[in-house]
């Protein structure tokens, strides 16, 4: 049972605010809590502007969280980081970005891009060992070592994303944050990269925080799913629970918007509209209600009673 395991990453009451002016603060992430267990995939979904990318960036500490606690690998990483904590965080947590072209340095050979983590943390590693470790990782992500001295422009989109994945994997991380890592790729290449990510997970036991807006892909890869809207985590649970028994009206609306592959069904499909104002849903007043021990939803008591009827 994964529930009895210690979570690898545990986020409690995370808030990430950005002060724009004296009178205006953007509450990009507002009081969210979730757990990621070792070797599992947590899918974070929501529309653009819902705060899912900000959550990923706050977790890897690109920002200083406004409030809340982030426990990773048994250490609190939400405050000031000690030198040891910083090293632990920077080696054990890695990120893969959406646009592989924008996240790779066009002037660097990919061998140097992939070895960046090694250069930073093991600057005295012998050149031979460095090369061998890069080759091993390249093979793992399906690139041949003869391509090591090429530049990013010489690769196709799918191959570039493999380079990004290799760069993340070289430090043997326990958690990889994949921020829309496959959204920019073509469908046939998406399937390749997702299969590769699953294979790597099986082999190395790394966990993923998989941020995406494509729910069918998230369903395919994730063990747990969190649904975000306007900075709040409105529902979280195991993948089957979210898909078979969605409780929150926003989750239902999102699920109803997934295109179906059957043209007869798809033509008549009318997605459920969701307007929090009209439904009088207030995210700030809601608290997390448990549907099952692994499935919880943000609601006030009367809302919860109505939705679970």
């Amino acid at each position: 049972m994964p529930e009895t395991k210690m979570p690898l990453l545990s986020v409690r009451g995370l808030k990430q605010y950005f002060r724009v002016s004296k009178t205006f603060t953007v509450k990009a992430v507002d009081n969210i809590s979730f757990d990621i267990f070792p070797g599992e995939t947590y899918g974070l979904v929501g529309e653009s502007g819902s705060g899912k990318s900000t959550t990923g960036q706050a977790v890897i500490r690109l920002y200083r969280p406004t409030a809340g606690q982030i426990m990773f690998n048994g250490e609190d990483i939400s405050g000031s980081l000690s030198k040891e904590q910083n090293t632990m965080l920077r080696t054990n947590m890695q990120m893969v970005f959406q646009d592989p072209m924008a996240s790779l340095n066009p002037y660097k050979k990919i061998i140097d891009t992939i070895a960046m983590g090694l250069d930073a943390h093991f600057p005295h590693m012998p050149a031979k060992e460095r090369k061998e470790r890069v080759y091993a990782i390249m093979e793992k992500v399906g690139l041949s070592k003869s391509q090591a001295n090429r530049y990013p422009t010489q690769f196709s989109g799918g191959q570039r994303q493999r380079v990004g994945l290799a760069r993340a994997l070289i430090m043997n991380p326990r958690l990889i944050i994949a921020d829309e890592a496959i959204s920019a790729l073509d469908v046939s290449i998406q399937a390749q990269v997702v299969n590769l990510m699953k294979d790597i997970q099986k082999e190395t036991g790394t966990a993923y925080l998989f941020i995406a807006h494509d729910l069918s892909m998230v369903r395919y890869i994730s063990d747990h799913i969190g649904v975000m809207h306007l900075g709040h985590l409105v529902e979280t649970g195991r993948t089957e629970e979210i898909f078979e028994n969605p409780v929150h009206p926003y989750t239902r609306s999102l699920l109803s918007a997934i295109p179906r592959m059957n043209p007869h069904v798809e033509r008549d499909r009318r997605p459920v509209e969701y307007d929090p104002g009209a439904l009088h849903v207030s995210y700030t007043e809601g608290t997390l209600h448990d549907v099952t021990p692994t499935h919880s939803v943000l609601a006030t008591d009367p809302e919860f009673a109505e939705w679970t009827k």
Binding site: M217, R219, Y220
Partner: peptide, 23 residues
């Protein structure tokens, strides 16, 4: 092309079928 897209109404497959190689 059709099988490389995960379908939400069907069973959750273990592995996505994918087209090998690049265009």
């Amino acid at each position: 092309l059709l099988s490389s897209i995960p379908d939400v109404s069907g069973d959750k497959a273990d592995r996505l079928y994918n087209i090998k190689g690049n265009p």
